[in-house]
């Protein structure tokens, strides 16, 4: 299968979504990412029992914080799928890209430009 997904997406591989920390998510935005989404295994299928559930909690923490500081919590999302679901992976990528396009770029980039000017 050679499925296409939007080229704006950069994939960061982790051994388990349980490895993803809220700090990783926040740093991504600090460095200019427009959106971040975590793709984990199906809930109940984690090899480490609850790595993907921990990831979901961290996504929720990040969403709440990003809302409070005016970046927008919607820019972070959690998805679950199994390794056999390539087409779904591509679908999610397209969905997330569309969502972020609609929200526009990370407001930090604009703010930094203004500060520099």
């Amino acid at each position: 299968m050679r499925l296409q997904y939007p080229e704006a997406i950069r994939i960061i591989r982790v051994p388990c979504t349980g490895k993803v920390d809220i700090l990783h998510i926040l740093k991504s935005f600090e460095k200019g990412a427009d959106g971040v989404y975590i793709v984990g295994c199906l809930e109940g299928d984690c090899r480490f029992d609850n790595g993907n559930l921990r990831a979901r909690k961290r996504v929720q923490q990040a969403q709440a914080l990003l809302d409070k500081i005016g970046i927008g919590g919607e820019r972070v999302q959690m998805y679950n799928l199994s390794s056999g679901e390539g087409p779904l992976f591509a679908e999610i990528a397209a969905e997330m890209t569309a969502k972020i396009k609609e929200m526009g770029p990370n407001p930090l980039k604009e703010a930094l430009k203004k500060q520099a000017a």
């Binding site: 700090l23 926040l26 740093k27 600090e30 970046i71 407001p107 930090l108 703010a111």
Partner: peptide, 9 residues
């Protein structure tokens, strides 16, 4: 991190 982003924003 959150404060940095807040103040930049």
């Amino acid at each position: 991190s959150a404060l940095r982003m807040y103040f930049i924003n």
